[in-house]
């Protein structure tokens, strides 16, 4: 009997495939295409203590094998999220991971406290969004700040916490160790790489925010390298993401040391992408004679 189940901080996922925060809303739009029960988990778009309006448009621009975004974490705030999005997601046989954002440490703590009594499985703490002026990446580029916010959030969180790391740092392992020291239960990486696109005919920035986060297959080799380095550096489970479009991409991340993977930008190129990745992993296991997906985690080299 083939096993596709993986465990993250004590939470068992039916398969290692989840959605990357911000690309999948709270699942409702994609549930019109397939049963979300096909996925190991749905990771929601970031939610803050109060509604955030996000950035001015244009918020996105396509780039070679990827895209830039500067949505700016537009979200309805925790009240609407608890009332509307969690009950909706509960209808599906999948785990719920809530991505949490904030401007101050207090904001993050307020959101995780509100979620304590809610039926969510894991919390992903977004300390790596490059598109907001306050909070976000400000906590994700200094090992000290990252360790401190991890400690604080951990004190208030009932569910296990995943710290989502930014690739916009000199040494990813230093950040991973800081999150581990702060008490993180798991790590997810990579968030987007800060980029820029210029319209040469208008001589203006393609994004109203000038800079945006680069995602898609263009960043995959960077992500695989960082996942590998992180898995080597810490004992925590790692969730790998960055340009995953196919099951082959996902297997690469798992071999590099990821216990689970997230499909992000590929959802835009194909609304069924995440489901296809989950199915493709099973096909790979059958073809390669792999009995247990866990045998593949970190099995490179």
């Amino acid at each position: 009997m083939k096993n596709t189940k993986v465990t993250l901080a004590g939470v068992e996922l039916k398969n290692p495939v989840m959605t990357a925060s911000g690309t999948f809303g709270s699942g409702a739009e994609y549930s019109e295409f397939y049963d979300l029960g096909a996925l190991g988990a749905v990771v929601t778009k970031g939610v803050a203590n109060v509604p955030w309006p996000g950035n001015p448009t244009p918020r996105i621009a396509e780039t070679a094998s990827g895209m830039l975004n500067a949505i700016g974490l537009q979200n309805p705030g925790i009240d609407v999220f608890i009332e509307r999005d969690i009950p909706y997601l509960k209808r599906f046989d999948t785990k719920i991971i809530v991505n949490v954002c904030g401007k101050t440490v207090g904001d993050y703590c307020q959101v995780v406290e509100r979620l304590a009594s809610e039926p969510v499985d894991l919390l992903e703490i977004n300390v790596s969004c490059p598109n907001v002026k306050e909070g976000g990446i400000a906590f994700g580029q200094s090992p000290h700040a990252l360790e401190e916010i991890t400690k604080e959030v951990k004190k208030h969180a009932k569910q296990p916490i995943i710290m989502k790391l930014s690739p916009n740092v000199t040494d990813i392992t230093e950040m991973a160790r800081a999150a581990e020291s702060g008490g993180a239960d798991a790590l997810s990486l990579i968030n987007t790489l800060t980029g820029m696109k210029i319209d040469i005919y208008k001589r203006s920035f393609a994004l109203a925010n000038r800079t945006g986060g680069l995602s898609g297959p263009a960043i995959k080799p960077v992500a695989v390298r960082m996942v590998y380095q992180t898995a080597q550096a810490v004992k925590l489970p790692v969730i790998g993401m960055g340009g995953i479009c196919t099951a082959e991409d996902a297997i690469e991340f798992i071999l590099a040391g990821a216990s689970a993977v997230s499909v992000g930008t590929a959802n835009f190129a194909d609304p069924y992408a995440a489901k296809k990745v989950a199915e493709g992993i099973e096909a790979y296991m059958d073809q390669q004679g792999v009995e247990d997906i866990r045998d593949l985690i970190g099995a490179v080299g």
Partner: peptide, 16 residues
Amino acid sequence: EERMACGIGACLACTC
């Protein structure tokens, strides 16, 4: 008209 990514209401790129 606005720049879109998902086209189905999930990504919040094309707001007005």
